[in-house]
Amino acid sequence: MLGMLNIALIALLETEEGKPSLLAVNPGLIFWTVITFIILLIVLKKVAWKPILGVLEERETFIKDSLDKAEKARLEAEKLLAENREAMARTEEEAQKIIAQGREFAEKLKEQIISDSKLEAKKMLDDATAEIKRKNDEAFESLKDQVAMIAIQAAEKIMKENLDTEKQKHLVDRFIDDLPKN
């Protein structure tokens, strides 16, 4: 079968007198091929290749530009982010410092207030003690004076009445009644 195919193929390629052959060159066809190809080249160059290649190039540059722009924007954003982060860190640090300062100040204030109030209290206590002592002394003094006065008055009265025990007793009782009740 293969042999048959082989023979057939050879027969196909053989040029025979008056018979059409695969290798026969037809000048008319060459002429039309040239004409057709040149027309196709001119028409397609005008209709297709120029606009299509133009659009492709335009789009490629557009995409390239867009990518470049995006890249630039990304770098910009990254820079901004880093800056923001730094600023935030700085602010945080600042805030921490302020808080620490406030705490320290408050602590100091507390200490001072406490010591102040202790001092005040001590002073008030001292004052109060002194006052009490003074009042005490005053009262004692006045009591001493009064007792002396009373003794003197009683002596006076005794001197005046001077007689029987009955009367004396009565006198003393009256005197005691006369004493201020305190």
Partner: peptide, 26 residues
């Protein structure tokens, strides 16, 4: 002899197809 043959016709057909397609594309 520049007769129109079968192959010429199909050559023109490919020309027509190509021009129409690429006209539409562009």
């Amino acid at each position: 002899d520049i007769s129109i043959t079968k192959h010429v016709v199909f050559m023109w057909l490919s020309l027509l197809i190509l021009v129409l397609i690429f006209y539409a594309v562009s």
